[in-house]
Amino acid sequence: MIRTVAKVLVVLNSENERPSQISLAVCFALIAGLTPFFNLHNLLVFLLVLVLRVNLSSFLLALSVFSLIAYALDPLFHLIGLKVLTAEGLRGLWTTLYNNTFFRLSNFYNSIVLGSLIFSLVLFAPLFFALNYGIKKYRRHILTWMKNTPLARAVSGSKLYEYYMSYARLRSRL
């Protein structure tokens, strides 16, 4: 866990990793973490996480955090899901999907599955843009300020830091 957190910090501070790669990873984790794990849509989420060049460490860390939050939010998901599934106007749609084998496999008719999926999909885009904005701000202001502190300067100017960075560069090529 500590290793993952460290990796996320490295990625956050790295100029090579684009903010959107981190934000998208967190947003995918939002879906996979908040919705019940063994469901068809999560297979697609994992496929996208592996195929798209999103940051895996951020995804794993966010997945753990959102999975914990999900337990507390289950009653809310149940309420949302049940309300939507029992809405008179949507009954025709749900009945059609219910009679389709693929959608039946997706467990959409479970109140928590649908409730949490709607919740996470609604939050997906706002969270993506908010995180992008936040990471950019962090790198521009906080990271630049931290790099200019006397302690950071002393560390980055030391021989030990120079050797460590050379080793890290060489190792990353392996």
Partner: peptide, 20 residues
């Protein structure tokens, strides 16, 4: 018509719809 099957707490409920 619409039918609600209660399951264990924390697992939500399965809402069943009319099958063709």
């Amino acid at each position: 018509g619409l039918e609600v099957q209660k399951t264990l707490r924390g697992r939500g409920v399965d809402v069943q719809f009319r099958e063709y």
